[in-house]
Amino acid sequence: MLPTDPEAARELQEWLSTEDSSLFGVEHDFRGADLSGGDFSGSWFTGANLSGVRLARANFYRADLQSADLSGADLSGADLVRANLDEAVLRSTRLDGADMVKASLCQVDARGASFRGTAIRGASLLGVDLRGADLTDAVLFRNSFKVTFDDSTVVRGLTGTVFGPVTLASGDSTRQLGGAELEAWIRERGGQVEVIPPGSPETTEG
């Protein structure tokens, strides 16, 4: 299904009719489209509007999604390995079962997003708002993890290793959680995460 926006639809049709491997969708409006299963590896969606778009099982390997609006989009099972999602909007986005290994998420609004069973190993999450997000059974591994949680953030079954600290928001107040305190907070809610201390040999490994 093509986007309702004529310019975006034309760009997509031209890309489909050629052998170009990358789609140039910078600042295009793809709302109304169903792009499930598409191969968009290395494509450019910088500043694009993908709100509510179906992108299940799509391939975004090394794609640029910086500042893209993906609110309410369905990215379940998508390949987002090494994708650039800096400053993207992921509010209420479905990322269940997605592969986000080594993806970059800096200054991202992911409130209410679903990461159930998502592989987030080696990804950088810096300044990511995860209030109300669902991280059930998500897997972390040596993640930079400077994120914001609140009491509605679900961490049941969350496993792996992270570099903290995490900001815990409660009403108008916030506090920092790191080390054993962060491990205990997650454990009390059904997760099992190890917080790697600064200066650990693991922090210098490639």
Rank of each mutant, 00 (worst) to 15 (best):
R62N: 08
R62E: 13
R62M: 10
A63G: 10
A63Y: 07
D64N: 14
L65N: 01
L65I: 02
L65S: 02
L65A: 05
Q66M: 11
Q66C: 12
Q66K: 11
S67T: 13
S67R: 13
A68D: 09
A68N: 07
A68F: 09
D69V: 09
D69C: 08
D69Q: 11
L70W: 04
L70E: 05
L70N: 03
L70A: 09
L70F: 09
L70R: 00
S71L: 08
S71A: 14
G72F: 07
A73T: 08
D74S: 05
D74R: 03
D74W: 01
L75W: 03
L75N: 03
L75P: 01
S76L: 02
G77E: 14
A78Y: 09
A78C: 05
A78P: 06
A78N: 10
D79C: 14
D79K: 13
L80I: 10
L80G: 04
L80M: 07
V81H: 15
V81P: 02
V81M: 15
V81K: 14
V81S: 14
V81I: 15
R82Q: 15
R82I: 15
A83K: 04
A83F: 05
N84R: 13
N84K: 14
N84F: 10
N84D: 15
L85C: 07
L85Y: 05
D86K: 10
E87K: 14
E87L: 14
A88R: 00
V89F: 09
V89A: 13
L90G: 04
L90V: 09
R91A: 13
R91T: 13
S92R: 11
S92I: 03
T93D: 04
T93W: 02
R94K: 07
L95R: 02
L95M: 06
D96Y: 01
D96T: 07
D96A: 12
G97Y: 08
G97C: 06
A98F: 01
A98I: 00
A98C: 03
D99R: 02
D99I: 08
M100T: 04
M100F: 00
V101D: 08
V101K: 12
V101Y: 06
K102V: 12
K102C: 08
K102W: 12
K102Q: 10
